[in-house]
Design a protein around this nucleic acid. Structure first.
Lengths: 219, 219
DNA sequence: TGAAACTTTGCAGAAACTGCAAGCTGCTGG
DNA sequence: CCAGCAGCTTGCAGTTTCTGCAAAGTTTCA
């Protein structure tokens, strides 16, 4: 993403990477994860098998992709949100453009998420990548609050947010597409904000009732 | 764990599995993940390489282990807790014996968690296994509340709890060992219960002050 | 145009993993 | 007690993943 190099060389690289990802997703979607070899993916993308490994360390990496790893723009936005805004609200605000981008490429992401859902062993990789994101996230949260990166609050918030986003994405992908991703995300963040202690399974009430938000935030 | 088969045959299997796990952990702890081959692990455990794969599908599986997967006893305890107790409290109560067992085998778990910490690529597998647990957990939560297993509350709570436990474990392992696992877990659950909206960055109140491990309770 | 920098590719090889068939060992019924 | 069954272990052959290296091709820039 941070690549603005518009030279012919880098453009070609981006194309190749994209071709590999799409080829991998399509083949695995059709046949299942272990009915597809790297050789076939490479052939479908029009490069040599060896080249595949110049782009991705493993077969799974091409399927799972970067997700949010290295969303440095998101990090900047997060740190730019006014300090008085609570952490979770700030995160939701900062990540909205990222999620909008996902919503915009809905078909691609639904394919990707369907493949992930159909091949549980890929969840392994998805979550593994999340672990990397989690570190970054914890560091950002800590930096914004001026607390230690390994403090309980930073670590737990990062992990919880990561998990919440993942669940929201999967629910979005499992739905019929009429409900936008942002709705799932808002629901997820609301649950985290108000605490998971009280389920309101009947969808009724209370989420916003008492919570003393302190600031009619927006930004 | 649920194996009560005390026959000589099953005993031998448990020994073999344990020997493979310990051998794998020790070797990887010494040399690093990719400086250890399955052949070496098998040899250290005194079995043939082929046998290794009768117990574990992958090298990583031997290292990461079951964690909480198939903690069916925990599930029973959880469902047995009186309905009036909030979900998170019930979970904490139900899982306490599980965590006590971990605390009791502290050295083994610290080795395992250290290995996980030292080899980030293993986090991938750890989290992947968590995904399986998460399904089970969501189902149990839903069952207890009489709501759908794919409801937002069940899915998000399961994911958040899973993440919280993982972070608590890692923090416990990173510590100097004076603070018990239960303290980290109580802290984690408190964060989830009260909502992550309000950080107490200055360490001011509530959390660390007393937190005298109120784990007098029994399940 | 020509050299530097980078990318692609083939090749050789280590290691991970699987299916199969044979051998060994604990278990069970007569 | 001991056949015979069942389940575990093992060797072997084979596929696939993934890596290092060096040659060959392509883009960039002076």
């Amino acid at each position: 993403m941070p690549e603005n190099k518009t030279g012919r060389r880098d453009l070609k690289k981006q194309r190749t990477r994209g071709a590999l990802t799409v080829a991998a997703l399509r083949l695995v979607d059709e046949r299942g994860l272990d009915q597809v070899t790297v050789d076939e993916i490479a052939e479908a993308a029009g490069v040599s098998p060896r080249t595949f490994f110049n782009y991705f360390a493993t077969k799974c990496e091409a399927l799972v992709g970067d997700l949010f790893v290295d969303d440095s723009a998101g990090r900047e936005r997060f740190l730019a949100v006014e300090r008085s805004v609570p952490t979770l609200d700030a995160l939701l605000i900062a990540l909205t453009p990222t999620f909008d981008a996902i919503q915009a490429e809905r078909d691609f992401w639904l394919l990707r998420l369907r493949v992930l859902g159909d091949n549980p062993s890929l969840l392994t990789d998805l979550l593994g990548r999340s672990a990397a994101t989690e570190q970054t996230l914890a560091a950002a949260i800590a930096e914004r609050l001026g607390i230690a990166a390994d403090s309980a609050y930073a670590l737990h918030t990062a992990a919880a947010v990561e998990a919440a986003i993942r669940v929201a994405l999967m629910r979005w992908a499992a739905g019929d597409g009429t409900r936008p991703l942002s709705a799932f995300l808002h629901e997820a963040f609301t649950l985290l904000t108000t605490g998971l202690a009280h389920p309101y399974p009947c969808g009724s009430l209370a989420f916003d009732l008492d919570f003393p938000v302190a600031d009619k935030e927006e930004a």
